[in-house]
Nucleic acid binder design. Structure first.
Length: 478
RNA sequence: UCCUCAGUAGCUCAGUUGGUUAGAGCAUCUGACUGUUAAUCAGAGGGUCACUGGUUCAAGUCCAGUCUGAGGAGCCA
């Protein structure tokens, strides 16, 4: 067996004096022809490997360059240097893979995030991306653990779908038809009956409708999978391919939904605070450094860890859409005409409005409920006032909308009437409507954009830096 | 998709009213030193100034278009 190594994260916790230690990793720096900072991705802290002078020949030492991969055997001893408590005195050094220093793009210096995005295949070897992706992993794990503990069933909804009824955004078409000469019907339109699935199909924009089918049998389900939007969005908050979490609960109303979302967000943040404090501390310092470059009024009031702790310790503010509009209308910003867009009941709130509520007025996450029905999706449950639906959005500081959800319309007559208003064909969604025909129940759910959550927790500011290989307009390298 | 800004060495950037052979720091290489923490010191190499076209005696610099990137907006998660 080749691998009997100890991971560096674990090794650093061991007492000095142990012999025959095996570590493997990649060289971060090689100082003074003697000191190798070795990293294996288990933690940002490197193990200092000491190659005593005269014990290794120059030919070998020359091959120890930045990002060369090494297998070291040696003895763990107390360090004579100040930067670390223990270090590994090497008995053998094996270069597993060389790294040509003239060609290797990552240098022992600070790089811009824009540059690192161009070498996304190597950026995991930096401290920032090491921390970001370990936190991302921890969040994903915590999500499964949260729902599992609550008895939710993890449901895999399809990636390829024929339904476009949700209207969540532009879709990527999935087809095997030839581009140059596709089959045509008698009207000259492309004949999708000839396509692979015998119909027009797309990549999913949401697993919600299928999720509701699961919830109305299992009670509680959640999905956690990739989602695709072909919107030409060029922002720090949008991806063409992103991961979404969509829980759906039978026998639940809007308040149950809000309670679930809030406890969910707190749980996964708490999990990361408990398990990834070293990475969070690094990211906290990174953010503080970054913000030193900004003018004083653009800096965050709280550091990253303080912000996360604050979210954990405080209830989210819960207001209705109508109250939100009132707050905006009575705000100093409105009176001073600071808003670019009009504020009145019925508008779809703009980023500037949401930012004001979250960052200026409440200074914490805000749940806005009961939006006007005309600006929301067909499946949301109509309230008794005839004007609003039982929707809820959670707005987070610095990110904006992080959760969108609602109680679903379970009353068949009301649902079909709404579909008719919005020109959605019933035949297309016969299977969805069946849940309302056979044992319908009050139910609710929400969608949470995973990368936006990772942004919030890591303090990163561009969504392209929290997914391994971002897909955005004009960009699908790697 | 719209608005704004940017593209000069491997990276981060400077480059004046258009004017001789385009610079710096870091990185890399060579040498020195050897308990260093992004080691230090000395020296060297390294450029299609994003691309295409135009104006001009002369363009990194001015103009037009294209491409790419960033920030903001819209759309949304």
């Amino acid at each position: 067996m080749f691998n009997k190594r100890i991971k560096i994260k674990e090794l650093l916790l061991q007492p000095a004096g142990q012999k025959d230690i095996v570590v493997m990793g990649w060289v971060r720096t090689f100082r003074n022809n003697q000191f190798i900072a070795l990293n294996d991705g288990s933690t940002n802290t490197n193990i200092q490997v000491v190659a005593p002078l005269g014990q290794f020949d120059d030919e070998l030492l020359k091959r120890i360059t930045t990002s060369a991969s090494l297998k070291i055997t040696g003895e763990l001893v107390s360090s004579q240097g100040k930067g670390q408590s223990v270090e590994l005195v090497a008995h053998t050094i094996e270069v597993l893979g060389e790294s040509d220093a003239e060609k290797y793009p990552l240098q022992p210096k600070k790089h811009s995030l824009e540059f690192l995005r161009e070498i996304a295949h190597l950026r995991f070897r930096t401290n920032t991306f090491g921390s970001v992706f370990r936190v991302r992993h921890a969040l994903a794990f915590a999500i499964h653990q949260f729902f599992h503990e609550k008895g939710f069933l993890y449901m895999h909804t399809p990636i390829v779908t024929a339904s476009d009824a949700e209207g969540a955004g532009e879709m990527f078409r999935v087809t095997t038809l030839p581009f140059d000469n596709p089959p045509r019907d008698e009207n000259g339109a492309i004949d999708f009956k000839e396509d692979f699935f015998g119909r027009s199909t797309n990549l999913t924009v949401s697993g919600q409708l299928e999720g509701e089918l699961g919830a109305t049998a299992f009670g509680e389900i959640y999905t956690f999978g990739p989602t695709f939007r072909a919107e030409n969005s060029n922002t720090t908050r949008h991806l063409a391919e992103f991961w979404m979490i969509e829980p759906e609960m039978a026998f639940s109303d809007l308040e149950d939904n809000m309670n679930l979302a809030e406890s969910f967000i707190k749980y996964i943040i708490g999990f990361v605070m408990q398990h990834n404090m070293e990475d969070l501390t690094f990211l906290d310092q990174r953010l503080a450094e970054e913000e030193k470059q900004l003018p004083a009024d653009k800096r965050s009031e709280m550091g990253l860890i303080d912000k996360l702790r604050f979210v954990l310790d405080n209830d989210f503010e819960r207001i209705t859409y109508t109250e939100a509009i009132d707050i905006l209308l009575n705000s100093p910003a409105y009176k001073k005409k600071k808003f670019q867009y009009e504020v009145k009941w019925g508008i779809d709130m703009q980023s500037e409005h949401e930012r004001y509520l979250v960052e200026k007025h409440f200074k914490k996450p805000v749940i806005v409920t009961n939006y006007p029905k005309d600006i929301k999706a067909f499946y949301m449950r109509q309230n008794d006032d005839g004007k609003t639906v039982a929707a809820m959005d959670i707005l987070a500081p610095g990110i904006g909308e992080i959760v969108g959800g609602s109680q679903r319309e379970e009353r068949l007559a009301l649902l079909t009437a709404r579909m008719k208003d919005m020109h959605i064909a019933e035949e297309e969604l016969w299977w969805y409507l069946d849940t309302r025909r056979f044992g319908t129940v009050p139910h609710a759910g929400f969608g949470l954009g995973f990368e936006r959550m990772v942004l919030f927790v890591t303090g990163m500011t561009n969504i392209r830096d929290v997914i391994a290989f971002p897909r955005t307009p004009k960009s699908a390298e790697f």
